[in-house]
Design a protein around this nucleic acid. Structure first.
Length: 562
RNA sequence: GCCCACAUAGUUCAAUGGAUAGAAUAAGGUCCUCCUAAGACUUAGAUGUAGGUUCGAUUCCUACUGUGGGUGCCA
């Protein structure tokens, strides 16, 4: 928590509480159990630095009109030793507080002193969280939804880290199960097509070009030597050949997208270690399973789900959810993360309650699993929605996207909207008008600051520490707006971490850029009197620090020249 | 049918239950002898419908309408 901001807010809270106590002692207000009230930053600057809604919240409590209560509070306020300069009653009963010049000066000094650590807090201190995101199928290339999930998950992890959580990033590799079987089948058919005619690809196989490429590469290395082998052996060999290449591909493509994971967790490791089997046994022991039509069912209806679901099929093969349960059990119990966060597409929403139900049956507090559902990305080209599916092989891949759209722009773009909103990705806009992407607006603000610093430096003028009095001279509306926005950075990160919405900090930094550009067009740095020039130089420097801190969370470049 | 999410300006998005609903973009009009015009200023323009909860609703609740997704012994 930014110390200065927190201090001011606490002072206001205490001041109000003390005033109420005084008013009560004097008999101006009834004695009552006080309910919580807000100390918030008003949207309108004319309403002061902080606004308190206590009088409105307490209207019923004191059986009085809000403005009357506000008056009683204000009559008894003591401002000694606080940042508060003055206060007023406004609107329906708000009490607006205006802070002293020293408050602004202290904020600026604080940012400069903390530098790249400014914005960090210990909100999540001592809590270990695991963010799992992308986890794309290794049976093919990543698609546009993975691009959103990647930007979102990676940035969310950064936000949590800044908010003090011990954070790890993880990719879950589905390298087992039905999809891999289907992968083997598809590779097999493509391989055999190279040597004979009349082999059709069934509807539910993978039709992508990448499968053909794998088959050809395999044929180049092994020729037709596997054609005569058993289907089982041939498919296993093909998977063994192609899968690691795909996984390496995912790794490389994500790295290009500036995403690095702490762990690449293989589903197959859960089977090899026996964890999947053990989970089935544990679920049986929990008493929430039953057998029906030769299959093993989980009594999800006992946990509020609308239907029970199958754990182990009649043919003895577990369904996909069993390894998933084992995987989350591994995260929360075996590895002991306090919280697991999954970034999933909205098409998984029906699956979340089931997974949670199973965890609950296993005695795990299911609220430790948080799922961020991300609405689907629809691709729009020429004003038309492109239906993209992996099966048809027509999906726009992450790689194709990054060939066309700069990485800075893509990462910023995908963090512009909150996860739970539908996203139309307009390819023409992203490709042709990438210069209108707001990322450049933010980067430009940073480059402008660097330019100011460079120009002054060329004249032999370098930034120095300013006194509290000098910093207090920054009093224009534009300067004050900018300082206040800088001050709210730490809170913004915490809110972003609480709501799992990294788009908040993207909006934050855009607004910061706006406030800087406005400042820039009104206030000059170079050529002003030395004290004011230095104070403004400090303000510029602080702004650059915060922009850079945000951009590094987003893993976007902060260019010194544009 | 049932379940979930979403619905705000022409378009794409904001707004811990708060004061005059903000931006961007598209349309019209200004500003470079002045630290980067990838900028600033300015004129117009919006809460799907009907109720409810309360000091106060874009926000919470109910119904309706529309869009997307789910509802497999697929993942």
């Amino acid at each position: 928590m930014s110390v200065i901001v927190e201090k001011a807010r606490e002072q206001i809270r205490d001041t109000v509480l003390k005033a109420v106590m005084t008013a009560t002692q004097k008999g101006e207000l009834e004695t009552a159990e006080l309910t919580p009230f807000a100390v918030e930053v008003p949207s309108n600057r004319e309403h002061g630095d902080y606004a308190v809604n206590a009088a409105m919240v307490w209207a019923k409590l004191f059986h009085k009109a809000p403005r009357m209560i506000a008056q009683s509070i204000c009559d008894n306020i003591d401002l000694k030793d606080t940042y508060i300069d003055r206060f007023e009653i406004a609107g329906a009963g708000f009490i607006n507080f205006f802070l002293s010049d020293g408050y602004y000066a202290d904020i600026l000094a604080d940012i400069k002193q903390k530098g790249e650590n400014y914005g960090k807090s210990d909100y999540g201190k001592g809590r270990k969280v695991l963010v799992e995101f992308v986890s794309a199928n290794p049976t093919g290339p990543m698609h546009i939804g993975n691009a959103r999930g990647g930007a979102l998950g990676d940035c969310l992890a950064s936000v949590l880290q800044s908010a003090g959580f011990e954070t790890e990033r993880e990719f879950y590799i589905n390298d087992a199960g039905n999809q891999i079987n289907k992968f083997g089948l598809s590779l097999d058919l493509r391989y055999r097509q190279l040597y004979s005619d009349g082999i059709e690809m069934p509807e539910d196989s993978y039709h992508g070009e990448d499968i053909i490429a794998h088959a050809k590469a395999f044929a180049k290395e092994y020729g037709d030597s596997y054609i005569e082998k058993s289907e089982e052996e041939r498919r296993a060999k093909l998977v063994e050949f192609a899968l690691p290449k795909n996984i390496q591909g995912l790794h490389d493509d994500l790295l290009k997208y500036r995403i690095e994971y702490n762990t690449w967790f293989k589903e197959s490791s859960l089977h090899e270690s026996g964890e999947t089997l053990r989970i089935t046994e544990l679920l049986k022991k929990s008493g929430y399973t039953y057998e029906s039509e030769d299959a093993l069912w989980f009594k999800a209806t006992d946990f509020g789900c609308d239907k029970d679901f199958v754990l182990v099929r009649a043919n003895g093969v577990p369904t996909y959810i069993v390894p998933d349960i084992a995987y989350h059990y591994n995260k929360l119990v075996t590895r002991g993360f306090d919280r697991a966060i999954d970034i999933l597409g909205a098409d998984h929403h029906g699956y979340v309650p089931r997974l949670k139900a199973a965890l609950k049956a296993l005695g795990v507090d299911e609220t430790r699993l948080d799922v961020v559902l991300m609405q689907m990305v629809r691709l729009v080209r020429d004003g038309e929605v492109i239906k993209a599916s992996k099966r048809s092989g027509k999906a726009i891949t992450l790689v194709t996207l990054l060939d066309e759209v700069p990485i800075d722009a893509a990462r910023f773009f995908f963090n512009l909207r909150e996860p739970n909103s539908h996203f139309d990705f307009d390819l023409d806009l992203a490709v042709n008008q990438s210069n209108s992407n707001p990322v450049y607006y933010v980067q430009y603000a940073y480059a402008r600051i660097c330019s100011i610093i460079r120009n002054l430096s060329a004249q032999g003028i370098n930034m120095r520490d300013c006194t509290r009095l000098e910093l207090s001279a920054l009093k224009t509306d534009e300067e004050r707006e900018l300082i206040l926005h800088l001050a709210s950075f730490t809170d913004e990160i915490i809110t972003s971490a609480k709501t799992y919405d990294p788009a908040r900090i993207t909006h934050y930094v855009m607004e910061l850029a706006t406030k800087f550009h406005k400042f820039y067009s009104v206030c000059r740095v170079k050529g002003e009197d030395e004290p004011i020039m230095q104070a403004r130089l400090n303000l510029c420097n602080d702004t650059a620090i915060v922009i850079k801190n945000v951009l590094s969370m987003l893993k976007i470049e902060a260019p010194e020249k544009m």
